[in-house]
Amino acid sequence: MTTFDGSFRPGTFTPAPGRGSTWRMLRTHAKVETLLTLRHGEQILLTLLIPLALLIGMTVLDLVPADQLDDADPVGWTTPRILALAVMSSAFTGQAIALGFDRKYGVFKRLAATALPLWVLIGGRIVAGLCVATLQVLILGGVAAALGFRPVLAGVPMAVVLVLAGIVGFGALGVLLGGSLRAEIVLAVANLLWFVLLLAGGIVLAPESLPPGLSTVAEFLPSGALAEGLRAALMHGAAAWDSVAVLVVWGVVGAGLATRTTKLT
């Protein structure tokens, strides 16, 4: 069971306490969190494989109704929506489920007992979320480019802002959900919401193609705001500050509620 010979040299455990360097703590924590996401089969399915399948499927199989396309080609119509889906999948659904199970397995009770400050705990998670989002955008963007996606370059900075606002908005909602309910319920609710927002939240169907009441709602959902904003920025090079505002408001409200409801143990 061990190669240890059973005796400890005196002085082995002589106290030498001290806090580790903040940079090293943050780096180690962010690395662990990123690896956990990338190693997790269901997370990869949710954050990468399903968006990839939809991107390729909707582009190649000519599934987009002609009256929705305006003057865009299928890949141009699909890519912004799939990027919105990817952000929602990782920042909201994946985040909520991971948080629910991390709480269940007592990781925060464990980490609360170390010298790891709370802000490093949160910061490491945010850095990990940004790493995962970067990978998603690079892979999905790369595949879309290979399929013929040609965004308006002037809209790319706006798209970056939108993706960041999306991470803020969806991330706060993910923490709100994952931090307040039992892990198994989080799993069910997060997956259900993912599906509902995908179909009726303005992602695979543009808000204007939804029934009248629902289309207004969808424009103010984080999913609809992010998808429409990314479309406007990447296809027309337009500013989409109204979408950013919707996402930030969701983020502020979600975070405000989450600070009250989140239980880390």
Binding site: P17, G20, V32, R39, R110
Partner: peptide, 26 residues
């Protein structure tokens, strides 16, 4: 501290978890 029922990330590897906690110390 060794808390009662304190755990780890469900998917974290044993060595990674200990490494993470070790990174908090000088």
């Amino acid at each position: 501290v060794m808390p009662q029922g304190g755990g780890a990330y469900p998917g974290v590897r044993t060595a990674e978890m200990l490494q993470l906690v070790a990174s908090c110390a000088a």
